Computed example of a mutant assay.
Amino acid sequence: MDFEPMTATPIRAHKRLQFNMFIQPIPKFKLMKNFPEALLPLFWVEEGITLDDEFVNKVKMVFKVLAVVGSYLSKP
Rank of each mutant, 00 (worst) to 15 (best):
F35S: 04
F35L: 14
S74G: 08
V65F: 08
G70D: 07
P10T: 05
K15C: 01
V45E: 04
R12N: 05
F63E: 02
P10L: 00
T7P: 02
E4P: 04
K64Y: 07
I49F: 12
N34F: 10
I26R: 11
F22W: 11
D53F: 01
M21G: 07
T50C: 05
E4A: 05
S74I: 04
S74K: 10
E47A: 15
N57Q: 14
F29S: 10
K64P: 01
E37Y: 03
F43Q: 05
M21R: 13
A8D: 14
K15F: 12
K28F: 12
F3A: 03
H14Q: 14
L66Q: 12
K33G: 00
A13S: 14
P41V: 06
F22M: 15
S74C: 10
V45Q: 05
A38G: 03
M32G: 03
N34Y: 11
F55Q: 12
L42H: 02
M61C: 07
R16C: 04
W44F: 08
M32E: 12
F19Y: 07
F63G: 00
N34I: 02
F3M: 13
E37D: 03
N34L: 06
M32K: 08
K30H: 02
L39H: 08
V69T: 13
N34Q: 09
S71T: 10
E4G: 00
P10A: 08
N34K: 12
K58T: 05
E46A: 07
L73G: 01
V65C: 05
D2P: 01
K58M: 09
P36W: 01
Y72C: 04
T7D: 09
K30E: 14
D2Q: 13
K64C: 09
K60Y: 09
V45S: 00
P41T: 07
G70K: 06
E54G: 13
L39E: 13
E46Q: 08
M21Y: 13
T7C: 02
E54W: 03
E47F: 08
M61A: 15
A8Q: 15
E54T: 10
W44Q: 12
G48D: 02
I26C: 07
V62D: 12
P25H: 04
N34T: 09
F3S: 01
P76T: 07
T50V: 11
V56D: 05
I49S: 11
L73M: 10
R12L: 13
E46W: 00
I23A: 09
E47G: 15
P10K: 00
T9Y: 06
G70E: 07
K33I: 01
V62N: 09
I49R: 02
K15L: 10
V59T: 05
K60L: 15
E47C: 11
K60D: 07
E4R: 04
L40D: 03
A67P: 01
W44M: 08
T7H: 11
I23K: 04
H14C: 08
A38Q: 11
A8T: 12
P36Q: 10
V68I: 07
P36D: 04
Q24P: 00
P5K: 15
V56C: 14
V68R: 08
Q18E: 11
L42V: 06
